[in-house]
Amino acid sequence: MRDSDVLDKNPHVSRSALEAIHGQVFGWALSRSDYDSSVAEDLVQQVYVELLTGKARFDNRSSLKTFVFSVVQNLARSRYRRIASRLRLVQAASTEAVAEAVQPIEPNESAALWKAVQELPQRQRDIVELVFCRDMTIEAAAGVMGVSVGTGRAHYDRAKKTLKTKLSNKGAGCDD
């Protein structure tokens, strides 16, 4: 960590360390924002603002990646809470507009595996993404999701089982 890199309000965080994980952070933000890249970029920017202002303070208790992922998760949650409450207000005036706004954009509909993942319940989808795609341990992933390690492990096992079953069924279907 170069001294000049270190953030004033976050002595354990450096610009270069953030740059090294930027791609992964953006990927996580992307999945938190229904694959809307502009929303994801705004989310990542907000995370950096939180780190720059010291509102989100990293104290070296976990890895920087785990910490930044947690910040993304929390910001996305609060943002969606705000959006959801606004949508409820708008819903009274126009139900059609709401239906369009909450429609998620499917990133790759043709991929069977991707579809199977998208069909999983939210928590299972999150832990699968964190463990398989973002190289996290189940413990770290559970920390990011804000659940206990036991709960994280249960979601992970269930997700794996569901995915394997779905994929083997689809594979069998293709062979026929």
């Binding site: 953006f26 992307l30 890249s37 990133p107 463990v131 794996k160």
Partner: peptide, 17 residues
């Protein structure tokens, strides 16, 4: 499963960053 998922995820992530 992990490799397949990672490939799928990379396709989604790539080009957006």
């Amino acid at each position: 499963l992990r490799d397949a998922l990672r490939n799928a995820q990379d396709k989604v992530d790539s080009g957006h960053v």
